[in-house]
Write a protein that binds this DNA or RNA. Structure first.
Lengths: 338, 338
DNA sequence: GTGAAAGCGCTAACAA
DNA sequence: TTGTTAGCGCTTTCAC
């Protein structure tokens, strides 16, 4: 079932069918109706590959997500898809495991799909110019700004929060409540990603408060997962309970930490306070409700698409957008009693 | 940068380049190496649309998800993508809002992408034969079996749990602990989807136990969301606390319900027991840990892809797979004290 | 082992 | 307003 069949069926030329398909102006009403009817009757579906082949551009935007199991991304992805669809683009989602190379995955996507642009979600911050060249299309880093790479600022876009500042802010919430035994819960202090930056903010906040850094309170989990966070905190508590505040770099980790504290017989926030960064829906329903710096998830996704569309249309060059978190007050932050 | 450029650069014919691209056997090593080098140097990327156009089949499998905000689907989707990739297929994800028509969305996907098959996640159960025809490619319903439609069993595949039986089982867990004031928390008793079937199981379990159905204990939320569940349970508790057990059709709803109970000063499971169906990771970390009938999420996704691949390859006809839940014992189920 | 050429389904000039 | 036709980039016979 091709456009030819439809044309033959209607006794018109293929170009006429093509015209009604792409609703070009000058087709007589009669012809148009006739063709439309035939299309419906024959259940004709245009071959998009043929279409793509002949039209200069594709209509897809790729999204590469590292750690899609993190519920933080769900609303972001939804926003991206909604925005793409609105603009007539199709979102092509690709999830990659924690260890995989997202730029390679992106290049592969570009290669196999006909992408116009790319959005990286939850990635590293250390792309090299060489890697980026392999991509060959505009891309925006969402949630990260590539601080550790050697990319020109003009070579890509980003939308993110200021991880250092937010890490500082979160830690400071604890400091201000009188906490001094403040732990940080993260995957790694050298992940070249959000954890590393937020860790730097944490260190700064401690330093500003005159609190020496105690590496035994740096809870690295290696894996960015709830079980890993749970195990890590449980392991610490089994040997020592000398901690009154925990800053978790993600809500999911905070929730796992609270469970570990609870299992160890510690109360939140009476014994230990917990703050996090993210603001996922789920943490509104934990007991107690999590106190967290909430990221504007939908806005992040929408902004990423907007930037991409602007760059694609030539409306504006690459740009870097910094979004603010808002403190979502819960019940896990209390005054230090020690 | 096309295959022609590469051919010209190497001083060979396009067909030769094509041969090495598709690693056909008879190309001399020298030529092969020369072409490969050129491809790398020129950073040549084959145009997939052109490829698709000339090859009979596409390589994509579509996934239409209703309610992607439900964390239940996350591992399912991940499993699907992993399995697709392993088999050389690309997953094309499409998320649709709660109210949207998934079959129409699927048809649209088929139309715009070159799909070989389709997987529906979290959909209705009432497709008509006519709708299915519009699809024109094999599809498998994941988590549902289309009990309410008029589809021939041979016209599609499915992988799901027995929602009636599991609803029965969940309710029975409460009955066996002596509960008689048992509420059910669901989106709608007439959603033509999982809720409706699990509700039937709930009714049956009550009937078998000689407990009359009390419609005031049927908590319909309309929306399938945490806020809706929270509000619905809170509203009930504000007017009456005459309930000792709640069966939630989803973990997320159960978590919201527990929060509502907690806010109303009720303890779980001392005052009210809660059981659910799903088994998402998050509910392992709630306080208390949720008691739930855990669905084999990864298996569901993998099975869906396996079936599709079998059908596509002609290895086997459409089939319907029923998976079992396993009771994941938590801390929210207790003996009724009244 | 390699090249020439046909044609996949479609769009967009260009003619009529 | 409609038809004719030349490709888009690629794979694949079929010759050589």
């Amino acid at each position: 079932m091709t456009i030819k069949d439809v044309a033959a069926y209607c006794d018109v030329a293929v170009s006429t069918v093509s015209r009604v398909l792409n609703n070009h102006p000058d087709v007589s009403e009669d012809t148009c109706a006739k063709v439309l009817a035939a299309i419906a009757k024959l259940n004709y579906i245009p071959n998009n590959s043929a279409r793509d082949l002949v039209t200069p551009q594709g209509d897809s935007i790729g999204v590469v997500v590292r750690g899609a199991e993190n519920p933080f991304f769900t609303p972001v992805i939804r926003a991206i898809e909604a925005r793409c669809e609105l603009a007539g683009y199709t979102m092509v989602l690709h999830q990659i495991p924690a260890g995989a190379d997202e730029v390679a995955a992106g290049a592969e996507l570009v290669r196999s799909k006909r992408l116009r642009g790319l959005i990286f979600l939850g990635g590293r911050f250390d792309y090299s110019q060489h890697e980026a060249n392999a991509l060959g299309i505009p891309f925006v880093c969402c949630t990260n700004t590539n601080q550790f790479g050697d990319l020109e600022k003009t070579a890509y876009s980003s939308v993110s929060i200021d991880d250092f500042a937010e890490g500082f802010k979160a830690t400071n919430l604890l400091v201000q409540r009188g906490h001094r035994r403040i732990a940080i819960l993260l995957d790694s202090v050298t992940d070249h990603s959000v954890s590393e930056l937020r860790y730097a903010g944490y260190c700064q906040a401690l330093a500003d408060a005159g609190i020496p850094l105690d590496t035994s309170l740096v809870f690295q989990t290696v894996a960015f997962s709830m079980p890993a966070a749970f195990e890590r905190v449980s392991a610490y508590l089994a040997q020592s309970q000398d901690v009154t505040g925990i800053f978790a770099v993600a809500d999911t980790m905070a929730i796992a930490a609270i469970k570990a504290l609870h299992n160890a017989g510690l109360h939140v926030p009476q014994d230990v306070s917990v703050v996090a960064i993210d603001g996922i829906e789920m943490s509104l329903y934990t007991i107690p409700t999590l106190t967290t710096l909430s990221q504007p998830q939908e806005t992040m996704g929408e902004e990423a698409v907007s930037i991409l569309l602007d760059v694609l249309s030539g409306t504006s060059p690459n740009r870097h957008v910094r979004l603010e978190t808002t403190l979502r007050e819960g019940e896990t932050l209390g005054v230090c009693k020690n």
